[in-house]
Write a protein that binds this DNA or RNA. Structure first.
Lengths: 154, 154
DNA sequence: TTGCTCCTCACGTCACGTGAGGTGGC
DNA sequence: TTGCTCCTCACGTCACGTGAGGTGGC
């Protein structure tokens, strides 16, 4: 069974690094680099030299990292501080390990809320900057067109 | 006489690299690097080893470059292709050299219009991406808060 | 004259790009 | 078995950061 959400294949299968890279729109080098920096969370015991395999949640996390990087211009250090832990993704998708207690779950969720709020603040700040820029560009274009009309022979 | 526009000092004086860097919010290294790449237009005969001096128009151009870089995430190569020539700035500020003919002025203005249009397109694309991101984040925050309320003891 | 800011190398860093040479799974 | 994709070094690149040592203008 394959469910497609917004054009992206989502199934329970494990994905190879090449597929993931193409889907997310980055290179395999970037994924390996992010893993090396610890941005993808703990790498559960993969033997050195063997193929990397990724879950759908790993892909979601990678998408979020890339979006924060591209849209907000964050450094990878800042990304590490702001990005979700994969446990929160589990929480949202209702796939808790039953080894986790309610109070522990609450703690994880509570910790992730400030991160999301901070991300939203950054998005709003960018939106304001872009609105300013848009206004300036629009005005400038109008002036250029007027000027051209004056200069060009009728 | 000093005219302040939107909090930025604008006068006819020439500015030193340190002032410019602080005003624009970058380092002197970045300014020198951009000059080396030719992003600041022709460096009119400055003797090697002497101090760099900048006009108000140079500062405006630098601001535009930095904004394109930061808000749209353009590489310096892309910047070079999209940024205004200083002649257009002259045009807009009504300070044409009288050595330039009307047809020549029209040519310069005509060439700069597609650049401004392209910049506006890029701004709009960014705005759409940010709006998407904002919606996702808002929804996620709502879900996190609901989840937390369910998990926490009343 | 004394600071302070400027100058030019030039090596370091961050975030990857790009092969070189070798191993593993449908 | 044959490709194709994966693996690990490791050097290269882009956009600067950061001193080292020296010169110039209120």
């Amino acid at each position: 069974m394959t469910i497609t959400t917004a054009g992206n294949a989502v199934d329970g299968r494990l994905h190879r690094i090449g597929e993931v890279a193409e889907e997310v729109g980055i290179t395999t080098r970037t994924i390996r680099y992010y893993e090396q920096l610890g941005l993808l969370g703990p790498v559960d015991g993969r033997l050195k030299g063997t193929h990397r395999l990724y879950t759908d949640d790993d892909v979601l996390r990678l998408r979020e990292l890339v979006r924060l990087r591209d849209l907000l211009g964050l450094t990878l250090d800042e990304l590490a501080a702001l990005a979700e832990t994969s446990q929160v993704t589990f929480a949202l998708r209702d796939r808790w390990e039953n080894t986790t207690s309610d109070s522990e779950r609450a703690r994880i969720v509570r910790k992730s809320i400030p991160n999301a709020e901070r991300q939203l603040d950054l998005v709003h700040a960018r939106q304001r900057s872009l609105a300013d820029f848009e206004a300036q560009l629009t005005e400038k274009l109008a002036r250029l067109r007027t000027l051209l009309a004056e200069l060009e022979p009728a």
